[in-house]
Amino acid sequence: MTDTLWYTRCPVPTASGLAHSLGWLGDTAARNGLAFGVLQDAGPELAVRHFDHTLPGLIREGGNVPALAARAQGSPTRLIGLTWIDEAQAIVVGPNSPVTSAAELAGVRVGIPAWARDQARSFPRAMALHGFANALRPAGLTLADVRIVELGVEPNPQVRTEIQHRERALTWGVAELLDGTVDAVYIKGAHAQEVAKEHGLRVAVDLDVSATRALRVNNGTPRPLTVHQELLDTRPEAVIGFLAQTLRAADWATTDHDAAAEVLQRETLSGPAGVIAAYGTDFTVGLHPSLSPDRVELLAVQKQFLYAHGFLAADFDLDSWLAPEPLEQARALVAAGQVAA
């Protein structure tokens, strides 16, 4: 039985990240007799578990590519929640590019990050491929209608501290776009918005204006909360407490908007303008996790895309991955006012 509740997340808006910043997750672990650890603060031997999710005691909230790839590889995880937060996905071109629409992407050179060390860590490639596929579809085009140029990537990305994150480029392909190696790249999130503005990049296709959510499915939409099966089996009360504090943090964000904005700036490694540009002024919408049928269906769209493009070692039954009971019990605790402050 594990004696530590481990937590990891990506540099994106999450209610669990808010709860961690407020100190609530560590308190929950302590109340359940567990130590509390954060992979971002751990050494490289543990940090890799962010991608393969084989660490007993681990709860992860982050991109769905590593989560789905780990499950397909056989990692003993369960899906305990999904969020949906639109985060400024776009296809951008250089300042002087004539491309202004999806139809005009036909025949252009698009930057796609190369494969990393394994499928889970190849999430930049998966994001770009799905981003372009979604952008092209309304124009009646497919990935076969563009010229893919592979971009160099870090083959073994690691979870990092905030300072280390700020020291690395978080937007793949901007350098190649500016030097003329490619004609268009996919970007998403707050930091990418800041980078695009800094270099005068233009939006050729704004994926967020699509009325069809299926055309906005990607690594962060929807975003999963997963738990190692051992922690769920042996310490279910800790998992329920974690989720209760996550729900409480999502509620808090709607009542203290300015304080939540400051936390999200740290979580997304961006300034105020980047957060607003990526997530809008009502950025707290979607922070509450659920396993609603529509979110599960949208995750199924992503799973199918990843499987078809080689990002999953095997297909698997999505419904068998779901564990809805902890979230249901956490909601009951919050509704009854039984979540310790």
Rank of each mutant, 00 (worst) to 15 (best):
G271F: 09
L269Y: 08
A190S: 07
H20F: 11
A253F: 02
E230P: 10
H199C: 03
I85V: 14
L22D: 05
A244R: 00
L46D: 09
V301Q: 04
A70K: 04
Q245F: 12
T54V: 09
A69N: 03
G180K: 02
D183P: 00
F123Y: 13
E328Y: 03
P11C: 03
S75V: 09
E194A: 12
L105V: 13
F316Q: 04
Q73R: 05
S75A: 15
A67Q: 04
G26K: 09
L58T: 07
A35L: 08
L318S: 03
W115K: 00
V174K: 13
T181G: 06
G173C: 07
E162D: 13
T255G: 04
W321T: 11
A133G: 10
V263R: 15
E61A: 11
V203H: 05
P324C: 03
S21I: 00
A133Q: 11
F316T: 01
I112H: 08
V285Y: 00
P224M: 05
Q119H: 06
S210Q: 06
Q329N: 10
K303F: 14
G152K: 10
V38Y: 01
L287K: 12
A190H: 03
P13I: 00
A70R: 02
G241C: 09
N96M: 14
P138D: 09
P56H: 10
L25W: 02
P222S: 10
G23M: 10
L306W: 01
L79F: 08
R331I: 15
I80P: 04
R213V: 14
V99E: 01
P236F: 03
L105R: 08
Q89C: 11
D208F: 01
L291P: 10
E267C: 11
E194L: 04
A340N: 01
V205T: 08
T83A: 01
S292D: 14
V301P: 00
I112N: 12
G37V: 07
E87F: 11
N156W: 12
H165L: 05
V110C: 10
H199D: 02
D233G: 07
K303L: 15
V285A: 12
T100R: 12
V217S: 10
T100A: 14
A323T: 12
L22K: 04
L291K: 02
T212E: 15
H50C: 06
G26W: 09
S290F: 06
L39N: 06
L25M: 09
A214Y: 09
V65T: 13
G241D: 13
L207V: 01
F123K: 00
G17R: 01
D315E: 04
V108G: 00
W321Y: 14
L215G: 15
E45C: 01
Q329G: 01
L264R: 06
G111H: 09
L68M: 12
E61F: 08
T284F: 05
Y7Q: 13
T161R: 10
G37A: 13
A336V: 00
L232F: 11
V195G: 02
E198R: 14
N96G: 13
R137C: 06
H53P: 06
V217Q: 06
T281R: 11
R78S: 12
F316N: 05
A67D: 10
F316V: 05
R266S: 13
